[in-house]
Design a protein around this nucleic acid. Sequence first.
DNA 1: AATTAGCACTCGAACAAACCGAGTGCTAAC
DNA 2: GTTAGCACTCGGTTTGTTCGAGTGCTAATT
Lengths: 342, 342
Amino acid sequence: MLTKRQINILDALIRLYTSTGHPIGSKTIMTETAIDASSATIRNELSFLEKLGFIQKTHSSSGRVPSMKGYRYYIDHLVKPQEVAKDKLQIINEVLGNHVKQMDDIMNQSAKLLSDLTSYTAIVLGPKAESSRLTGFRLVALNDNLIMAIVQTDGGLIENKVFRLPKPIDESDLVKVANIFNQHLVGLPLMEVARKLEKDIPFLIRKYASNAMDMYLSLESAFNASAEDRYHVSGKMNLLDFTEDMDKQQLKSLYSLLDNKGNLNVLIDPIHEDFVVKIGDEFDNELFTNFSLVTAAYQVSGHGRGILAVLGPTSMSYDETFGVLDVFRKQLTHTLLNYYLE
Amino acid sequence: MLTKRQINILDALIRLYTSTGHPIGSKTIMTETAIDASSATIRNELSFLEKLGFIQKTHSSSGRVPSMKGYRYYIDHLVKPQEVAKDKLQIINEVLGNHVKQMDDIMNQSAKLLSDLTSYTAIVLGPKAESSRLTGFRLVALNDNLIMAIVQTDGGLIENKVFRLPKPIDESDLVKVANIFNQHLVGLPLMEVARKLEKDIPFLIRKYASNAMDMYLSLESAFNASAEDRYHVSGKMNLLDFTEDMDKQQLKSLYSLLDNKGNLNVLIDPIHEDFVVKIGDEFDNELFTNFSLVTAAYQVSGHGRGILAVLGPTSMSYDETFGVLDVFRKQLTHTLLNYYLE
DNA sequence: AATTAGCACTCGAACAAACCGAGTGCTAAC
DNA sequence: GTTAGCACTCGGTTTGTTCGAGTGCTAATT
């Protein structure tokens, strides 16, 4: 168990380190904080904290920096979400206050704004109902062998895909297929849709619209796309500020990881608490050793939950990030409720 | 006028520099090339070439590196497009040989492939008819106040945009608007469409479908989007290999430039020759001092021309890049002809 | 028993000196 | 016109020195 003073010292050390970026020594803590003890005493405490693994030295006679365990303790016990400055608040309200927008626009702008406000990388995931349902399906013939399929879900997601068919299709076949889809799939949860799409639908098409079999095959992929999570990433390049110790190959790997949205699923766990922080060594991937991911969930009642995340250096200002995220998700919840109401 | 030997020496120097990355001295040229002269003679020639501005020293006793003028001379007179290796040829054929694809997929895969083959950054611009025409326009009501507009051009471009309307719109108004658009705009060149959209159409709508004025306003942006060029960029991170002398801020600027597709218009000139190379100091932007852009045009008869471009270091292997681009654009022309035929 | 002053010690960072070698320009001979 | 020879230049690397922030330990103090 840590004493009050030890906790204070740990807290001070992490704050000082976060703001200066340099290892912190006993003297600095003595002069820069309200802790009332001599540098020697603080030295003893530091030595103790180091034995417990909360802090560590970069070399034998250096000051101390927080260890992963230290950050973990700080995040779990010491973080004080910082109040967000007026001007920032105003920007958030302005950007998210504008109405009559596409869901995609809202998400993109949120990501952009969040990365600008934090100077880190922002990842935003749209609200996703526990069991999102297929609410609409259209087929539009653009010309003889070009067809656009539009898939709509109650999460506000609209996916479309254009198909080029091997051979021209009959208008009536098109209607038949659309009818089959609408009758058998609309209203079902997406999970269910995926299952039926593989099992029952081919059978029905073969029976009622055998000419359209070709089309059906191309169609599947549109549904698959709509089942994918939609990540909106912004400010990737901000990470450059925290990668001096990485070589080019690592940088490329890191960025190809962030560019490939499939990988983000691995990075971002579905969370059930308000805030979750994943620190350096808690990632499966070594590339993230010096990064932390702060994840905040937001709820849009009746329309599921979404995720806001900020990826920054492990030594980031958690106080500030927590503050911004908290304000942000409240405003976003608000904006989205309006969006669904309209 | 340069003598034969001087040309040979310049040629050799650039090749050696391109492959080693180090400044090249007289001895290296003597031993590594077939030029039959002593190092002293070569030294004299180098000194002469330097006086003319084709090459320069990095410091008073260093070897020589090509100057911008040297590269320019090399590109204009000495480049020998390199034959592309069998295995690379095969990959190109495979990837571009697959049929029944979306135009967008073809472009994206081309960019990906081109950047992989060159290890530089690839930029691909789809074929664009000298005067692309609007060939189709659809409005699909997704629900009461959600509408998808689909714009189609003869260049194979299909643009769609979803609108949320302030108030629900009547089905009949929708049809009216669609009719107005189809009657007055379809078949016209896009330039013309843009003009009419501002001038005549509002008048017509006010006359025949005054309820739909709101909608019309939202619609304009879909057309604007479809007029934009569609750049497909791949391998951005490959540039990291050639940016050691840039600081983080410059890197961020560079990438935000490449990310914003509007800026690419400034970078890439519409060209009328087969190959055009833009070297370091020929860019307006200082960020590109150490880069070169090799641009190749491809023709798809009857469907306009497109552009392939490779952005790499000024000291890149032009022989190889030219070779790859030449093969690539032939295969792409072929692929696209098939695409339009089907 | 906890705290503190004092001190020897450690080690990275910053700077300077020394050295090495690839390369040059020039001169004089071929 | 070409080349051998040579003094000279200059960046890069290595080696040595100094400086200061920081530590751990011991002994004195509270």
